[in-house]
Write a protein that binds this DNA or RNA. Structure first.
Length: 708
RNA sequence: GGGCGUUUAGCUCAGUGGUAGAGCGUUUCGUUGACAUCGAAAAGGCCAUAGGUUCGAUCCCUAUAACGCCCACCA
């Protein structure tokens, strides 16, 4: 027999085996499964998952590693169970994220995208994509992901772009898309609008400034009497230049007699009214609110109710407009200082207070978001959301763990129309003549489960769309439940009339030892590629799944990798013992296998109780493992297999077996060992395949396509 | 401001309506031909706090606290 080196060394096997699998075409469901007898393709049930397409700017982090392992377990399990199994990979063009990365690169050359112009800039982004866009997929391969790479998709592929256009035109024709002037989240650095979900709120200390607004009747007089002015509080004093009114609550006794009176807006010297509006909170600040319709969502709504004029004082690049005569061209922050200084000079600052509040920032470049009025495209969400909501409520789509359904349902239940246009260059152009805007990157990823399978081409017999859609399971991170999952569900229902998948797995978040989010910029992240390099992909996968219990967040423990590494070694050494026993007893399995004959190890008809017992325990373990995989409890499944293999099989049975060596015993050892190797293959594919190759060296068939 | 989750051995986590388990760590013993990346054994927990339901709760209910996450237009 081949020498099994004493310690198991993943480097001797992992890359080599991956290449063997890939070259044999095992990942491609066009090739497998085939009939055991005739070798021809057969009709079998299908199993399909689409990978959450990583951004082309991405590089493998622990979340990807965990998610890929989870998906690979399901895919390998179903493949071994004889399903026609497709795991479809690909990448997302990631409009804003990629554009940001390339713009940063340009900045080093002292240029902006505007210097290059649209066409030239896009050329540059494509170059970037061709150079770096595939890196993350190679990293998935390192981990052992058995995706069908021949079907790799990209959201800006011509065919995919066709799907996006079809979707847009469908909505448009149906009257679900409209244009409107609204106050939207605006990132001045990216110079684009953002959806509500793309704004990230961070708690920061700010200053709440109380400003005296003189009543018109007191114009020109020193403000000695409190009845000569009204005080408003704001964290953004520069926006006062765009004020259209001051609003108070109609129930507020303090201001009742002021409603309808006029104010002389300082600096601008413009007359604005004091109005009554129910939305004003009497408890906050002074109970009087300055209303800036162009730069605040709530104020815009007040403007609609009271028919106020709009004064836009901040432009698309975050600079003050002509309207803000006092500070034209200044950045908002500079203008803020100048305004406060001026108000102070005029004796109009009542007081300044420290104030902790949430500041909205761009989720890609972290720039403070300025709400800004602008003309955008919107998708009407009401009906789409209702259908998507029903699909989960009636149990057609299930979340695992199920409490995440609440996140989904709550969002859809309070949904507002989706602003789908972006003023970026990298993305799908809105298909109407003369429009420069592109679509929200999530508009295209919402079509992923069916656009990757060929939609909107007609469903011909045998097409991927017909064969694999709807898919079965989607596994992803919890922070994109609304951003992505919900949108795939309503898109799937709208365009195919079918749910895109039946089960949604929301995997654990991998935190660092301190229980904090791993952050690349803070250097608190653990690089899975380094783990793979040092300990191998199997040990890395083991550690991830070992710690993933019940969807709870994982506080990463490096010790789990060591536990995995030791477990692999244990398996390796047990194999050597089992093979030796079988050779000693001239087991038929180690005789020359007849050419082309299937290598199967059948269950021994054991007479000895000790052998019967371990066989029984094995069957029990197999049954429970399958149940756990079917309910997506991968952590418990791995713990069970670990327990069984190490303690029941090695510590107890194998030790006892030494006292009663026999042909029956050696065959039992081999049966249980190989059986357990199969159960473990989805979790730790490399070592199990390597062991299989040692035992079954005459046969060319790999474990990856053996049946359970 | 809402909502959700967590709180069990030194650490990270399982688990069950009847007085608790794993991995790692610690201690002791073991160099018998699968494995020292090992084996055998041991120590170590009033299962966050306070009430309630129950014959009985770590597990069910209520409240509290701490930590974490998500959502939300309080200027």
């Amino acid at each position: 027999m081949d020498e099994l080196n004493k310690p198991y060394n993943p480097k001797d096997h992992e890359d080599k085996l991956y290449k063997e699998w890939e070259e044999a075409g095992y990942f491609n469901p066009d090739n497998f499964p085939v009939s055991q007898d005739t070798g021809s393709k057969i009709q079998v049930p299908r199993f399909c998952m689409v990978i959450p397409p990583p951004n082309i700017t991405g590089s493998l982090h622990m979340g990807h590693a965990l998610n890929s392992t989870i998906q690979d377990i399901l895919v390998r399990y179903h493949r071994m169970k004889g399903f026609k199994t497709l795991w479809l990979p690909g990448t997302d063009h990631a409009g804003i994220a990629t554009q940001y990365v390339v713009e940063k690169e340009l900045k080093k050359e002292g240029k902006t995208r505007f210097d290059l112009g649209r066409e030239e800039f896009l050329k540059r982004v494509w170059e970037w994509r061709d150079k770096y866009g595939h890196i993350i997929l190679d990293q998935f391969k390192k981990l052992g992901a058995s995706c069908d790479w021949s079907r790799t998709r990209f959201t800006l592929d011509p065919e995919y772009t066709k799907a996006v256009e079809t979707a847009f035109l469908h909505y448009h024709k149906k009257g679900l898309i409209y244009q409107a002037n609204r106050v939207v989240n605006w990132c001045s650095r990216c110079a684009t609008s953002l959806s509500d979900l793309e704004a990230e709120y961070k708690e920061e200390e700010a200053e709440l400034i109380f400003i005296k607004y003189p009543l018109d009747s007191a114009r020109g007089k020193p403000l000695t009497d409190a009845s000569d002015y009204i005080i408003v509080a704001t964290t953004r004093p520069e926006t006062m230049l765009g004020d259209a009114a001051v609003a108070v609550n109609p129930k507020d006794e303090r201001y009742k007699n002021l409603i309808g009176k006029k104010i002389n807006l300082p600096i601008q010297n413009r007359e604005i009214p004091i109005i009554a509006d129910d939305s004003v909170d009497m408890e906050f600040g002074t109970g009087a609110v300055k209303v800036t319709p162009a730069h605040d969502v709530a104020d815009f709504e007040i403007h609609e109710r009271h028919n106020l004029p709009i004064y836009q004082v901040i432009d698309e690049k975050g600079r003050m407009t002509e309207e803000a005569k006092f500070c034209v061209g200044l950045k908002t922050k500079e203008c803020r200082e100048k305004v406060v200084e001026e108000l102070d000079k005029l004796g109009l600052i009542e007081k300044r207070e420290k104030f902790i509040h949430n500041i909205a920032k761009c989720y890609r470049c972290d720039t403070v978001i300025e709400p800004l009025i602008s003309k955008q495209w919107f998708l009407k969400m009401k009906d789409l959301a209702a259908k998507a909501k029903a699909e989960v409520e009636n149990g057609n789509i299930k979340f695992h763990p199920e409490n995440f359904a609440k996140t989904y349902l709550d969002w859809l239940g309070n949904i507002r129309d989706w602003s789908i246009s972006r003023q970026l260059w990298w993305g799908h152009k809105i298909p109407l003549d003369g429009v420069d805007d592109v679509l929200d990157t999530w508009f295209s990823s919402a079509l992923w489960p069916f656009a990757t399978l060929g939609w909107p081409r007609a469903e011909s017999r045998g097409s991927d769309l017909e064969t694999f859609y709807p898919t079965q399971v989607l596994s992803t991170a919890r922070d994109i439940i609304n951003l992505w999952v919900s949108r795939m569900i309503f898109s799937g229902l709208e365009f195919t009339g079918k749910k895109p998948f039946s089960d949604v797995i929301i995997h654990a978040t991998v935190l660092n030892k301190e229980g904090k989010r791993m952050s690349k910029s803070l250097g608190t992240g653990i690089d899975p590629l380094k783990l793979i390099e040092e300990f191998g992909a199997d040990a890395t996968r083991f550690a991830l799944i070992w710690q993933a219990m019940g969807g709870q967040d994982i506080k990463w423990q490096q010790e789990a990798v060591m536990a995995g590494k030791k477990f692999l070694n244990k398996m390796w050494n047990a194999t050597r013992f089992v093979m030796k026993q079988n050779e000693n007893y001239k087991s038929p399995y180690f005789a020359e296998a007849p050419q082309g004959k299937q290598f199967t190890i059948s269950k021994p008809d054991a007479k000895e109780k000790i052998n019967q017992d371990i066989l029984e325990k094995f069957e029990e373990t197999k049954k429970t493992t399958e149940e756990l995989i079917k309910t997506y409890e991968f952590g418990p499944a791995l713990h069970l297999l670990y327990e069984f293999f190490w303690h029941d099989f090695c510590d107890n049975y194998l030790e006892e077996s030494k006292k009663m060596e026999s042909a029956e015993t050696s065959e039992t050892l081999l049966y249980v060992l190989t059986g357990t190797i199969k159960l473990l293959h989805p979790f730790i594919p490399f070592i199990t395949e390597a062991i299989w190759g040692k035992i079954n060296k005459e046969n060319k068939k790999h474990l990856i396509v053996e049946s359970w």
